[in-house]
Amino acid sequence: MAMDAREIETMIRAALPDAIVTIRDLAGDGDHYAAEVVSASFAGKSRVQQHQMVYQALKGKMGGQLHALALQTSAPEA
């Protein structure tokens, strides 16, 4: 079963309440998304650590209900 973009956004915002989240459905199939996540929680963290935080927010759905997620993360610019 595919995930809805709103469900992805809701899960990310639940884990990172200050996040600005933009989700795009890349293939129109509900399985391939691109996400841009900007959060102050990412400050001082490596890109890998930032991505791990987002994957943790998705609670194991990555690779199952969510087949592919092109992820771009950053901390807000000061």
Rank of each mutant, 00 (worst) to 15 (best):
G60W: 12
S46K: 11
K59F: 04
K45Y: 09
Y33P: 08
S39G: 04
S74M: 14
R6C: 03
E7K: 09
E36M: 04
L69K: 05
P76K: 01
M53A: 13
Q50A: 09
G63S: 14
H67I: 13
M53I: 05
H32F: 03
Q50D: 07
D18H: 06
L16Q: 03
Q52T: 15
A70V: 12
E36H: 07
M62H: 08
D29P: 08
H51V: 09
A27S: 13
Q49N: 13
K59P: 06
G30P: 11
I23E: 11
A68I: 08
P17F: 00
I12S: 00
K45E: 10
A34I: 00
A75C: 05
K59D: 12
L16R: 00
V38H: 02
A40P: 11
A40W: 06
R47M: 07
G30I: 08
E77R: 00
V38L: 02
R13Y: 03
L71C: 06
A14H: 11
A14C: 02
G64D: 10
E9F: 00
V48L: 14
R13S: 02
P76G: 05
D29S: 12
M62D: 10
A75V: 07
I20E: 11
K59A: 14
T10A: 09
T10L: 01
L26M: 15
H32Y: 04
A68N: 11
Q52M: 15
L16Y: 02
D29R: 00
S41D: 15
